[in-house]
Simulated scan of single mutants.
Amino acid sequence: MSEPVRLDKTDRRMLRELQRNGRISNQELAERTSLSPAPCWRRLKKLEESGVIDRYVALLDGRKLGMRTMAFIQLSLLDHSDGNIAAIDTFVEESPEIVECYAITGTEDFLLRVVVEDVEALERFMMQKLLKLKGVKSTNSSLVLRQKKYTTELPIPGDGL
């Protein structure tokens, strides 16, 4: 694991602004962080090069795209052989329905967040894909009724939260 990057107050302010609007111009970012454009751009490049800023993305509204069903699926493996782990890794990478995947501790091995059009699409995903995957012992699914909070903004260390 790599060491955390040291951030000063201005870096943290820049990151807060960028998490809220990744398309902010350098000029506006400089103004909001009390910098002139050139030093702002240099700091931004340093944050990108260090990997603190991983990438810039557009966040889509799944409901407006017809993706109205979300589920969390806990997955248990028959065993933890290299082959089963590799099969899960490949399956996750190749399944657009899986938007997040975590290897977890506890009685289950993985936690998946799946987004699909409707309950029927979730059933097809589970029955025709996930449960046919070699090495899967069992699943436990929770259908999301309502999303109470969703953010991609991370708390910034040193902000005193």
Results as ranks from 00 to 15, higher is better:
residue 1 M to V: 01
residue 1 M to Y: 00
residue 3 E to H: 05
residue 3 E to D: 12
residue 4 P to W: 03
residue 5 V to T: 02
residue 5 V to G: 01
residue 5 V to C: 00
residue 5 V to N: 02
residue 6 R to S: 09
residue 7 L to H: 00
residue 9 K to C: 03
residue 9 K to T: 10
residue 10 T to C: 02
residue 10 T to E: 04
residue 10 T to W: 01
residue 10 T to Y: 00
residue 11 D to I: 03
residue 12 R to A: 06
residue 14 M to Q: 05
residue 16 R to W: 03
residue 17 E to G: 00
residue 17 E to F: 01
residue 17 E to A: 11
residue 19 Q to N: 07
residue 20 R to S: 14
residue 21 N to V: 10
residue 22 G to I: 08
residue 23 R to F: 15
residue 25 S to K: 01
residue 26 N to T: 12
residue 27 Q to F: 06
residue 27 Q to P: 01
residue 28 E to K: 11
residue 29 L to G: 03
residue 29 L to V: 00
residue 30 A to C: 04
residue 34 S to P: 00
residue 36 S to R: 10
residue 36 S to A: 13
residue 37 P to K: 12
residue 38 A to P: 07
residue 39 P to Y: 09
residue 39 P to C: 08
residue 40 C to R: 04
residue 43 R to D: 03
residue 46 K to V: 00
residue 46 K to Y: 03
residue 48 E to A: 06
residue 49 E to D: 15
residue 51 G to D: 06
residue 53 I to C: 10
residue 56 Y to A: 09
residue 56 Y to I: 13
residue 57 V to W: 00
residue 57 V to T: 09
residue 57 V to Y: 07
residue 58 A to M: 11
residue 58 A to Q: 11
residue 61 D to G: 10
residue 62 G to T: 08
residue 63 R to M: 11
residue 65 L to E: 11
residue 65 L to F: 10
residue 66 G to E: 11
residue 68 R to I: 04
residue 69 T to Q: 14
residue 70 M to E: 15
residue 71 A to W: 06
residue 74 Q to W: 14
residue 74 Q to L: 15
residue 75 L to V: 15
residue 75 L to D: 05
residue 76 S to Y: 03
residue 77 L to S: 04
residue 78 L to D: 13
residue 78 L to F: 08
residue 81 S to A: 10
residue 81 S to E: 10
residue 82 D to Y: 12
residue 83 G to T: 12
residue 84 N to T: 10
residue 84 N to V: 07
residue 85 I to Q: 14
residue 86 A to Q: 14
residue 86 A to V: 07
residue 86 A to G: 12
residue 88 I to W: 01
residue 90 T to Y: 07
residue 91 F to I: 02
residue 92 V to A: 03
residue 94 E to S: 11
residue 96 P to M: 08
residue 97 E to I: 00
residue 97 E to Y: 01
residue 99 V to A: 01
residue 99 V to S: 02
residue 100 E to F: 07
residue 101 C to Q: 12
residue 101 C to H: 08
residue 101 C to S: 15
residue 102 Y to T: 04
residue 102 Y to I: 03
residue 102 Y to F: 15
residue 102 Y to N: 11
residue 104 I to P: 00
residue 104 I to S: 04
residue 104 I to E: 08
residue 105 T to V: 06
residue 108 E to I: 00
residue 109 D to Q: 00
residue 110 F to M: 08
residue 110 F to C: 05
residue 116 V to A: 03
residue 116 V to H: 06
residue 118 D to E: 12
residue 121 A to V: 05
residue 122 L to M: 14
residue 122 L to C: 10
residue 123 E to Y: 14
residue 126 M to G: 02
residue 131 L to C: 09
residue 134 K to F: 06
residue 134 K to P: 10
residue 135 G to Q: 08
residue 137 K to P: 05
residue 138 S to H: 04
residue 139 T to K: 06
residue 139 T to H: 09
residue 141 S to N: 10
residue 142 S to D: 04
residue 143 L to A: 05
residue 143 L to I: 14
residue 146 R to P: 04
residue 146 R to G: 07
residue 146 R to Y: 13
residue 147 Q to K: 13
residue 148 K to N: 12
residue 148 K to L: 15
residue 149 K to S: 13
residue 150 Y to T: 13
residue 150 Y to I: 13
residue 150 Y to G: 15
residue 154 L to M: 15
residue 154 L to I: 09
residue 155 P to T: 11
residue 158 G to H: 05
residue 160 G to P: 04
residue 161 L to S: 13
residue 161 L to A: 13
